[in-house]
Design a protein around this nucleic acid. Structure first.
Lengths: 119, 119
DNA sequence: CTGTATCCGCCCGGATACTG
DNA sequence: CAGTATCCGGGCGGATACAG
């Protein structure tokens, strides 16, 4: 149509949409990224994570942790002591999300500024 | 980022979680980012968008477009001709999401490679 | 074409109680 | 502490019909 607008080829189009779709399929939803961030920030134990990620219930946290584990983002570790303690940690693969999280982080900060300034 | 693990202070912790939370609040959910990408790729009309973003129903598309408009990501344009035609376009603000989308795009591509290689 | 209205089933997830 | 089991209500979203 008008000049200056960047038009993608059909292949690029579906490719980009597919890539975004793949990404959202893996880390989309309300909690997954928040949980990964919480773990990046040092939360390790079940209750600790639940306290950090405000609003998540035990049931949902349990389910989400399982999915994250199945998809290779986190690892569950049982420490056998006098008591068995459990902890979760990120796998190296989850660090491949650093650019995504960094971008969201920056955008979220500047978006908040914009919203607060408005109201 | 370097290879070492970065430990954040408590303030940074909640700050990062809040920023991610803000971002997800605005552009989280199943469709918003996909719709923005579809618009970036050149879809303009209602049905065109619906065809591009596979799986979305008219009802949900309508709702999502309204929300995106309210939050300043897109603009609805009525062309008064012999027939009234409607089109949607991205605002400049939505382009601030470029780094996020770019990061997701890259990650999605390499994630797909990993998944396909596995199966 | 660009939506809106209505009906409705299903699943997500909260609350609570319970187990190891 | 780290979850699981059960119950249950609301809402998300599909299908369909309809409107401008």
């Amino acid at each position: 149509m008008t000049a200056g607008f960047k038009k993608y080829s059909d292949k690029e189009c579906s490719g980009n949409l597919n890539a975004i779709g793949d990404a959202l399929y893996a880390i989309g939803g309300k909690w997954k990224l928040r949980l990964i961030v919480a773990l990046m920030e040092g939360s390790r134990r079940f209750n600790e994570i639940q306290r950090t990620v405000v609003g998540i219930s035990a049931k949902v946290l349990s389910k989400e942790l399982k999915e994250l584990e199945m998809n290779g983002f986190i690892r569950k570790i049982e420490h056998k002591g006098s008591l068995v303690t459990t902890s979760y940690e990120l796998t190296s693969y989850s660090h491949s999300l650093n650019p995504v999280i960094e971008a969201l982080n920056r955008w979220g900060r500047q978006h908040r500024k914009k919203i607060i300034g408005k109201e």
